[in-house]
C-alpha cells in the first residue's frame, strides 16, 4: 500500500478508539478505590479508638503522608499515560515524600526518649501493615493499569511504577485508619515496605500489561 493511500484511509476513518484520558482515569480510579474501601470495611475495619486517634498529631501526620503518596502516584501515572510526556516536576514528589518522612522521624526522635525507640519502631502491627497494604492495593492497581491502557505509555516500566505508587498510597491511606501504630518511626519503616512491594509489582507488571 502506498503511504498516500494509507493516509487517505486514515483520514476517512473518523472513529476514535480511545476516550478522554483524564475522564477514564478518574472513573477507573473511583471504581478501584470503591472496591478497596468495601474490602477495608468488611475485612479490616476502623481501629476502635479512631475518634481519639483522629485528634492526635501522629495519626494525622501518618494519614496525610499516605494521601500525599497517593496524589504523587496519581500525578505521575496520568502524565506517563501519554507518549512523550515525562514525569516533569512530579519527578520530585518521591523526594518530597522522603523529606516528609524525615521530618516526622526527626520530630519523633526529639520527642521520645531513646530507650523507647526500638519499641516504637517495631510496634505491634508490622506484619499486618506489610501484608494489608498490598492486598488493598490490588483492585486500584488493576483499575489504574486498565485506565492507563486507554492511553499509550511510552515508558511502561515507569508507568507501572507510578500505578503502584498510586494504588499503594490509596491502600496505605485506608490501612492507616486501622493501624494502631502511629509513631513516625513505625510508619517510616513498615509502610514503605508494604508500599515498596506494590511499587515493585507495578514496575514488573507495567512492561507486560501496558504494551501497545
Amino acid at each position: 500500500m502506498r503511504t498516500d493511500d494509507l493516509i487517505k484511509a486514515l483520514v476517512a476513518d473518523r472513529a476514535i478508539d480511545g476516550a478522554s484520558l483524564r475522564r477514564v482515569f478518574l472513573l477507573f480510579l473511583v471504581g478501584g478505590t470503591a472496591v478497596s474501601v468495601a474490602l477495608f470495611i468488611l475485612g479490616v475495619g476502623l481501629r476502635n479508638d479512631i475518634a481519639v486517634a483522629a485528634g492526635s498529631v501522629r495519626f494525622q501526620f501518618k494519614f496525610v503522608l499516605m494521601i500525599v503518596v497517593a496524589v504523587a502516584g496519581a500525578g505521575l501515572a496520568l502524565r506517563l499515560s501519554r507518549p512523550g510526556t515525562g514525569p516533569g516536576i512530579w519527578r520530585w514528589t518521591p523526594v518530597a515524600i522522603m523529606g516528609l518522612f524525615a521530618v516526622g522521624v526527626g520530630g519523633e526522635l526529639l520527642e521520645v526518649p531513646a530507650a523507647m525507640w526500638p519499641a516504637k519502631l517495631m510496634g505491634s502491627n508490622s506484619w499486618a501493615c506489610v501484608t494489608t497494604i498490598p492486598v488493598l492495593a490490588l483492585a486500584p492497581m488493576a483499575c489504574v493499569l486498565a485506565a492507563m491502557k486507554n492511553g499509550a505509555p511510552t515508558r511502561p516500566r515507569l508507568a507501572g511504577l507510578a500505578a503502584g505508587l498510586l494504588s499503594a498510597g490509596l491502600a496505605a491511606t485506608l490501612y492507616a485508619l486501622n493501624c494502631a501504630d502511629d509513631s513516625p518511626l513505625f510508619v517510616a519503616v513498615w509502610y514503605p515496605v508494604g508500599i515498596g512491594i506494590v511499587v515493585a509489582a507495578g514496575a514488573v507488571v507495567g512492561p507486560r500489561v501496558l504494551r501497545w
Binding site: 486514515l10 476514535i16 478508539d17 501519554r82 512523550g84 510526556t85 492511553g151 499509550a152 501497545w212
Partner: peptide, 20 residues
C-alpha cells in the same frame, strides 16, 4: 491514528510525535 486521543493540545506536539 490509533492513539491520537492521547495527544493533549495543551502540550507540545513534537515530543509526542517523536515518542510514538
Amino acid at each position: 491514528h490509533r492513539v491520537r486521543h492521547t495527544y493533549d493540545p495543551a502540550r507540545p506536539f513534537m515530543p509526542w510525535l517523536i515518542a510514538v
